[in-house]
Write a protein that binds this DNA or RNA. Structure first.
Lengths: 343, 343
DNA sequence: CTGAAAGCGCTAACAG
DNA sequence: CTGTTAGCGCTTTCAG
């Protein structure tokens, strides 16, 4: 069967269905919406006409007519739809959204505040019921102010700058503490930290956890061992290279971001130090259990984060007007080898 | 700054803006749409009112009024938003969609025909301008028939069963040929094939390529060496275990799917045969260059596939009504170690 | 330069 | 059980 591809066609309207079925508009409306009180025969004539004309109701017009302000649509703004962590957030969001028949627009901000703003406006004018956003480094006061009266927004993964809205995030400080403590437990005192931009709340929190653990163990902090800005694999490599090139290099590394972890592995492998320098990475990374030694990581649960954020958003849509809430999702250290190398 | 979360609120309407600015509806409409012929002063009063009321135009109503049938929205149905290959398709789609200010709904079918059908209907009634679908194994005649008059659809990755619509796919047969020929070149004659369900066109094509190469080399095909259904990592493992357990086991494996590749690696590693049995995998897999030996793969270019499909879809939306087209995207064999183990 | 009237595709409220 | 009227938020005529 070969179909003509069919360009943007004019849609069949309810009026045409009514005409073909020989009934009024309202009757068609009734059968579409399963309203009671339509005779079997009439209903069947209408259904037939719908089939013949391949009629698809215009929910958009229905919503308008109903004076209903819900579009059953939400938008998700993430770093990139292509990034495994973000994609898992999406998965969780989708799971919960589907239970409500809510469709989700997803888009990548690429961490660019301008893109983020443009996307928020684009989705707002499309009447999404709410938003879930991984905020960029920008000050979010303007954006939140813009959204506040119109539509609920739940932030996910990162704390937005300058405001306090609903937030679902990992317990990043604890993650940093756990990773660092684990390395301390294996005898390390010079632990290099490879983390993201300081404008990103997760990076800040993980660093705080790192500092907590060192302070708790009475280890003086060497600021030289703390690097920032490992946004990409390449920058992670650069940071690891820098650290390992120090006069008194660290005996262990905590790579506090998935990309940074991969960069660190590459550098250690290149230097032949994969089995002598301890490494704790972050996030689940495909195949990281098959390298030698398998990578010890602190994992987050992005799917659950997505679920929680969406549930929260729906709560707001259902009228929950309690103060903004902060949901902390626990992380887990998974010891698999690379983090258990003694000094 | 603490904001009241703000539940689903009633939006400001154009009428209210007009009232506040002391002008008519139409004047507000004019400034919103940048129509010429509005006095500076008037325009400014309106802009002010818009700001004060935080008015966001309802594009949905605008479209309805305009009799415009484009919503600047498309839908993407993929296996899972969480799967790396699918996510990259999405990335490509997004890239092109954004150049047109088109928003994209994305959703996972999970390979379930019922879910797929439900999603198609859900998006159709939301008036998406078009669809991009990775078809499930189902017969697509019904679905295509349903869509044909209303909205263009481009299939991506897999050939839909029973119909011939626009399709963007990798040259899977060539991929299968390349992988197999590569192993033959390294002296192998017993090559195990781990591939997906036979209802999936990509799996069938890769198998055809496998058969082509063997036939071309005059090697008789041992049907025992051909396994199907490796949809998941676990099933990939099962297949590899089965193959390696044969009386006369293969000396090389072609794992024709990303998940299958990972499963095969695990099995070979477990058997201590990672360096003695040659392995060619499929698709880019994070860290697969860091295992020992690094994984040789045939890679696809999903981002480019996403771009092409979207460009194609927009072509249809712009009135291109030429016959359905099949776009083949080349694949590339990347030799990195595991595939260059001689018999 | 600005406004009033009509109507997009649909549903609500009320009739019959 | 079914139809009529009005109107959602906006844009298009077409007049001022």
């Amino acid at each position: 069967m070969v179909l003509t591809p069919g360009t943007a066609a004019k849609r069949t309207t309810m009026r045409e269905v009514a005409a073909l079925a020989g009934v009024s508009l309202k009757t068609v409306s009734r059968v579409i919406n399963n309203e009671s009180g339509v005779a079997q025969a009439t209903s069947q004539r209408v259904t037939k006409a719908i089939d013949v004309l391949r009629y698809v109701p215009d929910t958009t017009a229905a919503r308008l007519a109903r004076g209903d302000h819900e579009t059953q649509t939400i938008a998700l703004l993430i770093a990139s739809v292509d990034d495994p962590f973000s994609a898992s957030l999406f998965r969780g969001v989708e799971e919960v959204a589907h239970t409500r028949q809510v469709a989700v627009f997803a888009a990548s901000t690429g961490g660019d505040p301008e893109v983020e703003t443009r996307l928020v406006h684009a989705f707002a004018s499309r009447n999404v019921d709410g938003l879930i956003i991984t905020p960029t480094a920008q000050d979010h006061r303007m954006l939140a102010d813009f959204l506040a009266p119109h539509m609920p927004c739940v932030y996910i993964d990162r704390q937005p700058a300058g405001i306090s809205g609903d937030l679902v995030t990992s317990d990043n400080r604890q993650a940093g503490r756990d990773a660092t403590q684990h390395l301390i437990d294996y005898g390390h005192r010079r632990i290099g930290l490879i983390t993201d931009l300081q404008s990103i709340s997760t990076a800040v929190d993980r660093e705080l956890g790192y500092r907590d653990a060192l302070a708790g163990a009475g280890i003086e902090i060497d600021e030289q061992l703390i690097t920032h800005g490992a946004e990409t694999e390449a920058l992670g490599e650069a940071a690891a290279t820098f650290l390992m090139g120090l006069d008194d290099p660290p005996t262990a590394l905590f790579a506090a971001r998935n990309m940074a972890s991969i960069g660190a592995i590459r550098v250690l492998r290149r230097l032949g130090k994969l089995t002598s320098v301890a490494l704790v990475g972050m996030d689940r990374i495909e195949l990281s259990d098959l390298i030698e030694p398998p990578l010890t990581v602190v994992t987050q649960d992005p799917v659950e984060m997505g679920r929680l954020a969406t549930t929260h958003l729906f709560g707001r849509l259902d009228g929950d007007d309690s103060p903004p809430e902060r949901v902390l999702v626990p992380t887990r250290l998974e010891a698999r080898g690379s983090g258990e190398i003694r000094r």
